[in-house]
Design a protein around this nucleic acid. Sequence first.
DNA 1: CGACACCTTGACCAACGTCAAATCCGGTGG
DNA 2: CCACCGGATTTGACGTTGGTCAAGGTGTCG
Lengths: 244, 244
Amino acid sequence: MPLKLVQSRGSPARALGAPCSACDIRDISICGSLSGDELERLRQIVSTVRFAAGQAVIHEGDPAETLFNVVAGAVKSYKLLPDGRRQITGFLFPGDFLGIALNDTYAYTAEALEATRLCRFPRRRIEALLAEFPNLSQRLLVEASNELVAAQDQMLLLGRKTAKERLASFLLALSDRAARQGRPHNPIELSMSRGDIADYLGLTTETISRTFTQLRRSGVIRLAERGEIEILQRQALRALTEGG
Amino acid sequence: MPLKLVQSRGSPARALGAPCSACDIRDISICGSLSGDELERLRQIVSTVRFAAGQAVIHEGDPAETLFNVVAGAVKSYKLLPDGRRQITGFLFPGDFLGIALNDTYAYTAEALEATRLCRFPRRRIEALLAEFPNLSQRLLVEASNELVAAQDQMLLLGRKTAKERLASFLLALSDRAARQGRPHNPIELSMSRGDIADYLGLTTETISRTFTQLRRSGVIRLAERGEIEILQRQALRALTEGG
DNA sequence: CGACACCTTGACCAACGTCAAATCCGGTGG
DNA sequence: CCACCGGATTTGACGTTGGTCAAGGTGTCG
């Protein structure tokens, strides 16, 4: 019972844009797994799109026709309940992949947090490349694996951690991720609002605010200008992460 | 266009004396994506292992040297905080894949809920096959995608749903999954304890118990013999899932 | 300079957790 | 068949964390 990809049909590739081989974020993105030839094929199907802060990139429930790679900016992805309760499932930064879940419809909505640039891949074309370049599907699998591990950490956080532990975990994770992706990691620049943090951590803005105050008063962090957060005692913050 | 499984009609017709081609759960497992030849290669690296209820299959933090496929029984996977708080990240049933996260160490512990039989694949061998059979890595990617979607649903549940909504969601998800995998789906057989359900839903045993009572009193479910749960009003239960 | 969105703080409240005590139930041995 | 044991489950009384509601502060951008 072999698994077959439904082959892409339709209009020819529309080329344009800068070569992927010179891409700023190539090393930290999915494209890093591809050779010169493969990159060229990818370039033929990619286009660049921009979104202003607050604009939706994809909508939960819409047919999943496009995959994105964040090039610059920041994105939040979230799910809603009918009465408006919201759970943010992740924040995406340059190099992160959006829409990896290869299902018929998007499982969540994604919205730009600030001016954002993304690479846009028609899904049918990507699937054709998957069949051609095993590297690519292996790389996507690795990516999905990492997301899965992060999702499990988040379940532990949402199911079992206190407000203070959640916020400490969040700040450290943001800082660590920024470091890994070569962005400034202390002070941390928060591109999201208190409300977004709350909806990510399963709390309310008020609780986020109170907990920030608590961490600040205990000297673990400092609330710097432009909403940046400086970590003053990384070890202490790490301890708070698991109830120390 | 979504990735689609294309079933070849008729039997693959590989006797071989090998169990894989005649495997009970082949159609619902990862192996369903493989042709006769590939299956034979898989058979060469697989072995069957059995675990009694309560035995650990893998340990969080151990080097990830093995992947498993559940053949019979049931497994829970969980993460612990240093002080013993526990979050169950999933329950696995026949056909489910354990250890898909291809990282160096296991991200969670997995433990048999009852007498359980699993197929055991050495990880290095699987990785070799991945390079050889693109089908396999694509199928694993689909599997990982589905897990990712489920994980996001679970985040919404843990972050934003009330106790009653959580339990309703859990019961329906169990029933739906059992149906999809061809197991009895009403009454639902709960292979896990109240404590396990609590640790999966981010609640306590007491709250689970009280909420069961509430659902029973309102006539939505019935607590049948041997701990089975009969769904009496599926529509009502579905409504409760999102606060209806 | 004023409007508006975001953030902080305070007072009070409710959902769920904690602690404790029945009760149930399957397994065991007489 | 029945009595008993031990763990799981249920139920009850009460406590706590974080939510709700409301007011005031801060900063940013016309």
